[in-house]
Nucleic acid binder design. Structure first.
Length: 310
DNA sequence: CTCAGGCGATAGCCATTATC
DNA sequence: GATAATGGCTATCGCCTGAG
């Protein structure tokens, strides 16, 4: 495999790469598509984990929106609690209402509960980082993340976004999509990486062959040069690929042979165990709701948004 | 302390688009 | 098709910082 580290050599570089054309996927002819809403959501997406505050100028740069438009939207989002304005720095940070949305989404995912224990056990057994991911437009986003006892170099947490094209998790997800959906995603990837499409395509093809032959794929320094990993798809009971799992570690900690002979088969088994666990568990709304949403004194449950605002 | 320069925010106007 | 809402462009204002 050639050196493709220049494609995306840092997480920040990847984050920048997804900054442009955020509202893509919409059709100008689609009368049901509300552009203003999409733009508002794009502004929220401009904020990345660990980056702190952003000013309107930076948001405008990241989203490709005009500054006055950004100013209006950030004002509106602030009024609604989705952004906080820090007067001292004249910048914005994500507000509590965003957390409420994220919490509401993540707490209702059966797959996340079913995956936690198997991923934790695997992370400890391999001394690796393991994760469950789902699609986020043309990226993968971590829905669960576990770390082995002495993994020092990888600090990806829940909410981390990684590229679909150059990670084992993303390729595993792509592999099991229905043809029509996969082709759409690959078209988008080709547009995004048009300058390096030959290399990206070669990587995808190699991974798809591995997935066909063995049920998992291996990446070696293709996203971050110091990182390697294996990925496996996680299909819904109806056969569609809704998620993917991975195990990753710094390159110096592991040999490629061991990735292929040991980690891959183990990850495939974990994916199978998670799917079995999902089938055995009742819906979150029936089983975990009370534990997640404590009763108030009057016997009512506080709304999620109210809990997150505290 | 003053001033200039840089940066970010926004008001005003007008064109375009969405909605009814 | 009428009206309201949205968005883009430009100019300007205000704040901050560093130099003198």
């Amino acid at each position: 495999m050639g050196n493709v580290s220049h494609l995306v050599t840092r997480t920040a570089a990847f984050q920048s790469s997804i900054e442009n054309g955020l509202a893509e996927g919409s059709s100008s002819k689609d009368r049901q598509f509300v552009t203003a809403l999409a733009r508002g959501l794009d502004i929220l997406r401009a904020f990345h984990a660990g980056e702190g505050m952003l000013g309107n100028q930076e948001i405008a740069h990241r989203t490709g929106l005009p500054k006055p438009t950004v100013a209006r939207l950030t004002h509106t989002l602030t009024e609604l609690g989705y952004l906080n304005y820090i007067r001292r720095f004249r910048k914005y940070e994500l507000g509590a209402s965003v957390l409420a949305l994220g919490y509401a989404a993540i707490s209702s995912m059966d797959v996340r509960r079913a995956s936690r224990q198997p991923l934790e056990q695997l992370a400890h057994a391999l001394n690796a980082s393991t994760a469950l991911g789902g699609r986020d437009r043309h990226s993968m986003i971590y829905l669960e993340a576990c770390r082995g006892p002495s993994v020092v170099a990888i600090t990806h947490d829940v909410g981390t976004r990684v590229p679909m094209a150059s990670t084992a998790m993303g390729r595993a997800y792509l592999f099991t999509l229905p043809d029509v959906d996969r082709n759409k995603q690959i078209d988008a990837i080709r547009r995004r990486w048009r300058d390096d499409w030959t290399k990206v395509k070669a990587g995808l093809e190699r991974s798809f062959k591995e997935l066909t032959d063995r049920g998992f794929c291996v990446t070696w320094g293709e996203w971050l040069p110091e990182l390697c990993g294996v990925g496996a798809p996680l299909r819904n009971s109806d056969g569609t690929a809704a998620y993917a799992v991975n195990a990753s570690a710094p390159i110096y900690q592991i040999s490629r042979d061991r990735l292929e002979a040991d980690w891959g088969p183990r990850l495939v088994k974990v994916a199978r165990d998670i799917r079995t666990g999902m089938a055995a568990q009742p819906s979150i709304t029936a089983s975990a709701g009370p534990a997640l949403r404590p009763m108030m004194a009057n016997g009512h449950r506080p709304p999620m948004s109210a809990m997150a605002r505290r």
